[in-house]
Design a binder for these strands. Structure first.
Ligand SMILES: [Mn+2]
Ligand SMILES: [Mn+2]
Ligand SMILES: [Zn+2]
Ligand SMILES: [Zn+2]
Lengths: 158, 158
DNA sequence: CTGTATTTTGAGAATCAGAATCAATATCAA
DNA sequence: TTGATATTGATTCTGATTCTCAAAATACAG
């Protein structure tokens, strides 16, 4: 385990899952976990470039995909499909269920939850004789404030 | 234009759009339109097999894709992505905006609309300083009634 | 109706994200 | 430390959709 990391608990969570399943804690898995937990939403490709830039070690794109999927199994990540033909991985470590509001102009992603909407969804399902397993609610639009929209666009930490 | 078709109006709609854009009304476009208007939701591949079965004429898969996209431009169809890696085309000719309830067991698709939910969505967007362009709401679950679930599964006309 | 310019078609190649292969390498428990 | 086992990364493969382009169909002026 890396010294000086502020992610002892998170790495422990990963290690625990791995051990329980006779899997191994590798350097790349740890590196990927750390980089992933630093962001909110990211694609495999972006994470790959992010890690490669700091080229602390060789890292194959396939490993990024494999590990990201592993994190989803553990429950640390979740796949999102805001636009078809690319998967965005959502870091949900300290988050509960939420839906998304997405700006088509600056790609800002806002997370929200609406108990009222969730209730109406259940009601609608029941009305049609359905038991709900999950749902997907995505709202697309644009920021009213162009300045904010641009500022977000320019900021690197997304 | 085919004789005996009950789709004069719809074919006219297509022809009108085509003429307006210096495009041509071909046999395959008419065949695809007719087959498409016969269903609610269908993939390009399914429509391809459907038409090939009745092999009234040779028809390339690329033509199906091209024409389905054309119908979407006209507003007769709309792409859906209930599961990533395959596009379902929704025949929306006589439908207004609606969302979907999908059975994970039998693939039944129920269309619904909820003004109450739509209102709450707008409210949520406004709260975050957003103007809404569109949204995606999909509810996944399963039919309570297994019998109905199976019956649906067996019925051909989907 | 006919000739001609223009669009469309179908077969197959190209694309692209993501998964599968597999020999070489790393991990871990005894 | 050793050896069984899992993992890695380079590469190939996959599958849905789009692209290419020569041959065929269509529209429309005459
Ligand atoms: Mn999120
Ligand atoms: Mn529909
Ligand atoms: Zn914005
Ligand atoms: Zn069902």
């Amino acid at each position: 385990m890396l010294k000086g990391s502020s992610l002892y608990k998170e790495v422990a969570l990963l290690k625990n899952y791995l051990t329980k399943n006779r899997l191994k804690l590798t350097q790349q898995r740890e590196t990927i976990l750390e980089a992933f937990l630093r962001v909110d939403h990211i694609t495999a490709e972006e994470l790959y470039r992010e890690i490669s830039k700091k080229k602390r070690q060789r890292m194959g794109l396939a490993t990024i995909y494999r590990t990201l999927n592993l994190l989803c199994e553990i429950g640390i990540g979740q796949q999102r499909h805001f636009d078809e033909n690319r998967t965005i991985f959502d870091n949900v470590l300290h988050k509960k269920h939420h839906d998304h509001l997405i700006c088509n102009k600056c790609d800002k992603i806002i997370e929200f939850e609406s108990p009222a909407i969730e209730r109406l969804q259940e009601e609608m399902a029941a009305r049609h004789g359905f038991t709900l397993n999950n749902h997907r609610l995505e709202l697309y639009g644009h920021c009213l404030d162009w300045k904010k929209c641009r500022d977000w666009q320019k900021s690197a930490d997304r």
